[in-house]
Design a protein around this nucleic acid. Structure first.
Lengths: 221, 221
DNA sequence: GCAATAGTGTCTTTTAGACATTATTTA
DNA sequence: TAAATAATGTCTAAAAGACACTATTGC
């Protein structure tokens, strides 16, 4: 693209995109976040990368996440743009962060359970502190989880992270964990307009009465 | 700032900030937006400008708005980052847009009443279409108004745009216009926790019973 | 009094909170 | 039948919707 002379004199910041990509953890109400290890700094980071002049941020995001983690087809919405002066030691870098969700559980690499200020490896042993992440990515994760919690009742975000069919108790655990409150058994009543029954669970490993499976209404896919 | 060689090869987008700055219109429930006329294109635009490498976006925003419109001391929060490929014909420009509010009414220049798809001059005659604005600024204004409407009940945004003391009917007109609904006389009951009485109105030009004046609770300033 | 605006009271409807009870299912 | 999980019913409390009615004020 031709750059007009009137603006070409500006020394301008770099622009990156970063993905805070979550899936449900295997414990009810927990979240896993996808990280990758930065080769230069050795720190764990959110997947993302630099934005060229001829691509949309959302497209670059998907490409970089797939390149660095193999994940694709996930849900993504813009979260916030981070512009602290010293967030990247190499240069001034402004990052457009995205809240991303997936219900895909086929991939097992580099997922970390979010547990307060700790991140625990979902495969094998090991944990790291949130504060040890690169750049301001700990802050982005915190903000992304807060956004998810705020939009549970006003969006289809729950449907993007829950499996295609799910037990009510799993949905309830997610809501209760993110909102820090208890819905007793009123949860079904409050969610009833947004889900529909899809058959019975047949998981032999779970004790007790079998649960009805639901699907989230009004999803595109 | 030193730029690391590993990233210095990237041809990167320019970054701008744009302010969608609103005040209450003089008709209850209306909003005025501040524009300025771009000297190169002749189009009306939101105030804003290019972001240098050594400044925070919020600081640049305030400086540019003051430089182009004289407004200062207003409330500002990040709205969204706009990155369409062709939003600026001169080059690839990514813009961090802010929702801004003021209760200042001393300045009279270049305010435009938002009236559906039209913008009407608040001083003198004349109107323009939203779609005639420069860049994607019509979209930014639309998004900013939607954000304001969505956060009325969950934030102190109303207190940032209402005068320090206001009549209940003015607050109600704002809420009803932005939400497209009617609160009958239940409005005071629903807002009662967030406002407190501050005396009586003494506007001689208004007919009918004098109103109680309220102030918004919990503002910093 | 009348027009115009401000404010209160109250009845109804809806939603949410709390929890007791019932229903399955496997060991 | 005991333990574990799932689901329903119901009572209460709080919030929202609708609207009749009362209160001021200036002309």
């Amino acid at each position: 693209m031709r750059v007009d002379e009137s603006i070409s004199k500006y020394d301008h910041p770099y622009v990156t995109v970063d993905a805070a990509l979550f899936r449900l953890g295997d414990k009810p109400g927990t979240l896993d976040v996808k990280l990758y290890k930065n080769k230069s700094t050795g720190k764990w980071c959110l997947p993302g990368g630099f934005m060229p002049v001829d691509r949309l941020a959302m497209d670059v995001l998907r490409e970089k996440v797939e390149e660095k983690t193999g994940e694709e087809g996930f849900y993504a919405e813009q979260l916030k743009t981070y512009d602290d002066l010293d967030r990247d030691g190499r240069a001034r870098v402004v990052s457009i962060a995205y809240l991303c969700l997936t219900r895909d559980w086929t991939d097992e690499e580099n997922w970390w359970r979010v547990d307060g200020k700790l991140l625990r490896k979902t495969v094998g042993q090991g944990f790291i502190r949130m504060s040890s992440l690169g750049f301001d990515h700990a802050q982005i994760i915190t903000d992304a989880i807060a956004r998810l919690g705020n939009k549970l009742w006003w969006s289809d975000l729950p449907g993007e992270i829950l499996p295609y069919t799910f037990r009510l108790s799993d949905a309830q655990a997610l809501f209760e964990a993110l909102e820090g409150k208890t819905y007793y058994t009123n949860f079904k009543r409050m969610l009833s307009d947004r889900i529909e029954a899809m058959g019975m669970d047949d998981d032999e490993r779970r004790p007790g009465r079998k649960a009805v499976l639901y699907r989230w209404k009004g999803l595109e896919g």
